[in-house]
Design a protein around this nucleic acid. Sequence first.
RNA 1: GGGCAUGUAGUGUAACUUGGAUAGCACGGCAGCUUCCGGAGCUGUUGGUUGCGGGUUCAAAUCCCGUCAUGCCCGCCA
Length: 621
Amino acid sequence: MIPVTTYYAELRQRISESIMKAAHLAGYSTDGMDVEGTIDFSRSFGDISSSVAFRIAKGAGVGAAEVAAKITSGMEKVAEAEKITPEGGFINIHLDRGAFAENVMEWAAGWKGDAGKKGKIIVEYPSVNPNKPWHIGHLRNALLGDSIANICAFNGGEVEREDYIDDLGLQMVESLWGWLNLSSSPDKKFDHWLGEEYVKVNKRIEEHPINKELSSLLIQMERKDTEESKLSREISERCIKAQHQTAFGYGIYHDVMVWESDLIREKIFEKGMEILAEKGVAKKEAEGEYAGCLIIDIEAVKDLPKELAKLKEGVKVLVRSDGTPTYVGKDIAFHMWKLGLLEDRFNYREFAKQPNGIAVYTTSEKGERMGFGNASEAINIVDARQDYPQAVLRLALSLIGGKELSERVHHLSYGEVELEGAALSGRKGTWKGFTADDLMDEAVKKAESMMSDRNKIDEKERKTIARKIAASAIKFEFLKVSPEKRITFSWGNALNMEGNSGPYCQYMYVRAVRIIENSGGKGGDIASASSLVNDQEFRLVKAISAAGQIAQKAEKEMRPSIITEYLNNLSAAFAGFYEAAPILKEEDAKKREARIALVHAFMNVSGVMMALVGIEPVGAM
RNA sequence: GGGCAUGUAGUGUAACUUGGAUAGCACGGCAGCUUCCGGAGCUGUUGGUUGCGGGUUCAAAUCCCGUCAUGCCCGCCA
C-alpha cells in the first residue's frame, strides 16, 4: 500500500475501495485496474468523478452506463459524499462541501512535508565554467536545480547541493592565456570582466592562431604544483566568488563544490578507471584506431538504448592515447564517487559563508575529510545538448552495477534559452546584456517602480522587498515552462509581474497577511470549517486539498512547472474568495472564524509552495 | 544518413508519461467593477479544424503508423 500523506489522497483511496466493493458485488472484475487513477476532480460534472465503468464495461461486454448505474447503487457510503450519481457512464460524486472542508482544513493547517524519510540525494547544478558570468541559460539551470533540491528535501530527502567546477581544458587555458597576454586589468565585476576577456582571446585566435602556445600552456596548467596551475586556480576562485554574488542575489546556494582538477589530483578518476578495467567494463586497446586508449566497447552491449546505437565505431573513449581523461571518463568517475562506489578521498575547506547561514565547502588540496558524496540517488541538471553523454554515463553505470545502479542517476534535461533564434555563446560573447545580473537589475528597477507608496517603509526595506519581487518574477517565469521546452528570451516575459506570475502569487499572499493582521491576531477556528460552502470558498478548499499530490508529482516528474501552475490556480482561487465575500466584516461569527481559518490555510499552503520554487513571500508590496 | 526533442487562439503556455465529458491559464483586444479586509486585483466577453494525413478505441491534444517544419546531438571537444 502506498503511504498516504494527504487527506485528498486518502479520500480518493476510500472512494476507490467503495467502487471496487460495489463492482465486485455486482459481479464485475476490477483486476489489474488502477481504479484510484480514474478518480479526480471534475470540472463540471459533480465534484469528483471516475471513468472506471468504461473499463469494466469493456471486459464485461456490457454498456458503461449500466455498469456505472449498478456500481453507484451498490456503493457504500463515503462520508463526504452528499450523493453519488451515474451520468453517461461516469460515476459522479457530489461532495458534502462542509464535511469536505472540515477534513481539508484540518489537514492543511499542519501540512509541512515529510522530514527525513528517504536517503541522500545529490542535486548537481549549474556547473558553470569558472571563467565567465552566469547568463540567462545558466540561470535556468540554477533555478531548476534549486527548485528540484527544495522539492526533494520537502518530500523527505536528505539533499546535497553540488556544483561541479570544470577548471581544466581548453576554455580555462584560453582564459589563462588572456590573463598572461592581454594587457587589460579588471575594471568591473570580475566574472563579467573575465568573460569579456575570454571573448577577446577567441577573437584573437581567429585572427592569429596560437594553438601551440595554448597546448604547452595547457600542459603546465593541468600539471599539479606549477605556477600556471596555481594561477589558474586563483583566477577561477576569484571568478566563482563573483558568480556567487549573482547566485546569492537569487537565493541560490550550495553545500559543496567539486573541482575537476581535484578529481584528478586525488586520483579519484584513476581509481574509477581501474575499477572499470578490473570489471571488464573498459579495456585498453593495443592496436587499431584507438591504440593506447581506454575505451568502452558499446557495440558489445545488449539492449542498447536507441540513442546510443549510432556511436562512432561503437566505442567511447575514456582515456586518450596520451593518457589524458575525456569528459565522459571524468563524468563516469565523478558519478561513481557520487554513488559511493569510490572512497571519498577529497579534502575540503570552507569556501564561503552564504547569506542563508550555511557554509559552502570546496574540494581543495589542503583541508579536511568531510564525508560528502555517497548518495543513494543523483539528479543532474544538464541541458538537452548533453542527452547523449548523459545516456553514455548511465550505460556505463549499468555495466558496472546493472540497472539498479544506473537508475540511481537521473538526468533532468532542459531546453536551451536562446535569443530570437540565436544561441547564447560564451565564446562569441552574445551573452553580453543577457547575464543573470543584467536580468536582476532590470527586474529590480521594474519592481521598485511598481511598488505602492501606501506602505511606510524605509529605503533599505523597500530595496529588499523589490529584490524579492524581482527574483520571484524571474523564477516563476523561467520555471513555469516545462523543462524540455526551449525558451526564446524576451524582456517582456521575463519581467512579467501580472497575471500568471510570481508577483501575482506574492500579492495574494500579502493580501492574506494584511487580513490576518487586521483580524487582531485571532487565529480563526478550524472547528467552524463546515460553514465553508459557497462557490468561492469551495473552490479554494478544493485547490488547497490538491497540494500534497502536487508536491509529490513535481518530484516524481522533476518538473517545478507543476508547482508554478498550481500556485497560479491556488492564488486565483484565493483572489476569487476574498473578492466574493467579506471576511473580517462578516457578521455571522462562525462564518467569520471559518474564513479567517481558510486564510491561514491558504497562507500555509501557498508559503510552502512558493518556497519550493524559491520564491520568498513579502509582507508588503 | 541515424537518434532525440518540440509544434496547441494574435502572442506565451497547461493538460500528453496514466486516453475520458464543454482543450485550462495568462498576455493582448473589447465592456464593466474602487465611499467596502490593498486595483500587481476582480467580473464578463473576444479568439482553437491541438502542424498535416491515416489507424486503434465507446472515447484521441494524449496511444500507433506515416508525413512536414524547427532545433539539437552522433569527436582521442567539454
